[in-house]
């Protein structure tokens, strides 16, 4: 009998070591900043903040882009910027450019927009540092939750950190929007869940235009698709459409590593103050450099 009990106990130990231990998920009541109130930006407010944050034109009191690793295979750290349309498309997918709850009219103040299944808050739905009170200094958490400009700048900063932390595409030129494919992927979750070869996603699939099921696409394809198909407000697109190319999914494989750029790529510029000035140059692999 003792031997049987020992064997059962041993078997239970083996099972408990063999399987990764589940952990408690974050619940909304644990997240930081959920009681904040926030100004709901107008579309013009949000657009200006996106452009200034992406171009590094906000003041020193806002989160700043890190120096960006540039070049491949040799890389150097440079002062760079993020193609403006990427944070704008991310912000649209994350929140519809809302800092406050969806019932709050633009131009007025209301309760902060809280996470959809996580601790994300505000326009960029950033959860990094917001999983519990004190994970970041309280004034920072409060600013992320209550100030849409700060929230956008913080999201852009994280996107820059993801650029530095993910493998390169092409020669890792941050002015080329397609080279941010991995960084946008990592902004949501750098893992198999967003791998374009994940069989959860239909294949082949058309470019995301905003009218297909979200669950049919990895996150970065939602963002790249919206870059080419900007939502319209009063008949006007929120940003200049750019038909971004996707990298070869076959080259990405199961374990993403540095890959060549797509055949056609787009060098984009943040233009202040008018984002509708043509700010994109398309090139193929042969006729530009």
């Amino acid at each position: 009998m003792r031997r049987l009990l020992f064997m059962l106990a041993a078997a239970a130990m083996v099972a408990s070591f063999a399987l990764p231990a589940p952990v408690e998920e974050a619940f909304a009541e644990d997240c930081a900043g959920t009681n904040a109130r926030a100004y709901q930006p107008t579309y013009a407010d949000a657009r200006a903040a996106f452009i200034r944050a992406s171009a590094g034109l906000l003041g020193a009191s806002y989160p700043r882009l890190p120096l960006l690793l540039t070049g491949y295979p040799e890389s150097t750290l440079v002062t760079g910027s993020v193609p403006c349309l990427l944070p704008q498309a991310i912000g649209w997918i994350e929140s519809g450019w809302r800092q406050a709850a969806s019932g709050t009219a633009r131009g007025s103040v209301g309760p902060v927009l809280t996470g959809r299944g996580g601790c994300g808050v505000g326009v960029m739905q950033t959860s990094t540092g917001m999983r519990f009170a004190g994970e970041l200094p309280r004034p920072v958490q409060l600013a992320i939750a209550s100030d849409y400009v700060y929230n956008i700048a913080y999201g852009v900063q994280i996107l820059g950190q993801k650029w530095n932390a993910t493998p390169t595409i092409g020669n890792a030129d941050p002015t080329i929007a397609e080279h941010w494919y991995y960084a946008v992927w990592a902004y949501n979750a750098w893992g198999w869940r967003n791998n374009p070869n994940n069989p959860d996603f239909p294949w082949p699939r058309p470019t995301y235009t905003g009218s297909q099921p979200v669950a049919n696409y990895p996150y970065q394809e939602l963002v790249f698709g919206l870059a080419a198909n900007p939502p319209k407000v009063n008949g006007e697109p929120l940003w200049q459409a750019v038909p971004l190319s996707l990298p070869d999914a076959g080259a990405i494989g199961i374990s993403p590593d540095s890959i060549p750029e797509p055949l056609v790529v787009h060098r984009t510029y943040c233009v202040v103050p008018d984002p509708y000035i043509p700010a994109v140059a398309e090139r193929t692999g042969l006729d530009w450099r």
Partner: peptide, 24 residues
């Protein structure tokens, strides 16, 4: 899952459920 990247129910004939596991 046992460290696999993803796990999928792939078909369930009479002999039992087929499970697809994708790993590195």
């Amino acid at each position: 899952g046992d460290g696999a990247l993803g796990m999928y129910a792939a078909g369930w004939p009479a002999e039992g459920l087929h499970i697809l596991r994708i790993a590195a």
